[in-house]
């Protein structure tokens, strides 16, 4: 196994997921398979390729930028339309323990 149950719990905790012991075993196996597969990709020689974590293309350097012009936003009513809880024009969330 390339990944431990403890690592699975740690990653789940970071993602705010609460897993049962059965789920931890299941995801440990799944993640392990993914890592084994990535090891196979590592066999390809990529020393002459640019990393493609982000899309790359040949264009004018500012072609992907926007001008600094503002437009009105959605407004409170629309912005809060799907909020599970709202009040006084704000989103409301269960009390946050002060950091």
């Amino acid at each position: 196994m390339k990944i431990t149950a403890e690592q699975v719990r740690y990653v789940a905790d970071l993602a705010n997921l609460h897993l049962t012991d059965d789920e931890v075993r299941k995801f440990q196996a799944d993640l392990d398979e993914i890592l084994v597969h990535l090891d196979r990709l590592n066999e390809v020689d990529t020393s002459r390729s640019e990393p493609m974590a982000q899309v790359l293309y040949e264009a004018e350097e500012t072609a992907t930028l926007r001008p600094d012009r503002s437009r009105p936003g959605l407004g409170t009513e629309l912005a809060l339309a799907n909020a599970p809880a709202a009040g006084s024009g704000y989103f409301k969330v269960p009390e946050v323990i002060k950091r």
Binding site: R69, S70, R71, P72, G73, T76, A79, L80, S88, G89
Partner: peptide, 13 residues
Amino acid sequence: SCPTSFGAPPDTN
């Protein structure tokens, strides 16, 4: 493109 203006009513911009 939302405005950055300070002091707008909450959750409008």
